[in-house]
C-alpha cells in the first residue's frame, strides 16, 4: 500500500448489497462497486467501470472465484477481474482499482 492517507466514507447499509452479489455506490463523485461474499463473509470494492469498453457495469456482474481467488465477471463481454489484485484474469492487460472495505454496526465503509 502507498502511504497516502486513507479516508473512510460510509457507502450504504449492509442490506443494500445483495448476498453473493454486488451494488454500486456514489462516493465523492466516483462510482464504486461493492461486493459481498456471504458464504465467507468477505467484502470487496472496486471501480464500477469495466476497462474493456469503459462501461459502468461491474457492480452488476456475477461474482465468484477462480482457484480460490475472488473475482467479478463484467456483464458485457464476461471479462473477469480479481477482486484482490484488480488484474484481468484473461490474457489481457486490463486492471481495475480496488478499495479497502470495512463494516461497522451495519454500515459499509469504503477507504478512498
Amino acid at each position: 500500500m502507498s502511504n497516502k492517507m486513507l479516508t473512510w466514507h460510509p457507502a450504504c447499509s449492509v442490506e443494500d448489497v445483495p448476498a453473493d452479489g454486488g451494488a454500486c455506490a456514489l462516493i465523492e463523485g466516483e462510482q464504486i462497486a461493492i461486493y459481498y461474499f456471504a458464504r465467507r463473509n468477505q467484502w470487496y470494492a472496486t471501480q464500477n467501470e469495466c476497462p474493456h469498453k469503459r462501461q459502468m457495469a461491474l457492480s452488476r456482474g456475477m461474482i465468484g472465484s477462480k482457484s480460490g481467488e475472488p473475482k467479478v465477471a463484467c456483464p458485457f463481454h464476461k471479462k473477469t477481474f480479481s477482486l484482490e489484485s484488480g488484474l484481468c484474469l484473461g490474457d489481457e492487460a486490463y486492471t481495475i482499482r480496488t478499495y479497502p472495505v470495512k463494516v461497522e454496526e451495519g454500515t459499509v465503509w469504503i477507504g478512498l
Binding site: P18, A19, D20, G21, K53, Q55, M56, A57, R60, G61, M62, I63, P75, F76
Partner: peptide, 21 residues
C-alpha cells in the same frame, strides 16, 4: 430466494443490457 445474484446479469434485471449500460 436469493437466486437473483445467481442469474446471468440480463436475467437478474429482466432486461438485456445495452451499450452504455
Amino acid at each position: 430466494k436469493g437466486n437473483a445474484v445467481a442469474q446471468d446479469s440480463n436475467d437478474r434485471f429482466l432486461a438485456n443490457i445495452q451499450r452504455g449500460g
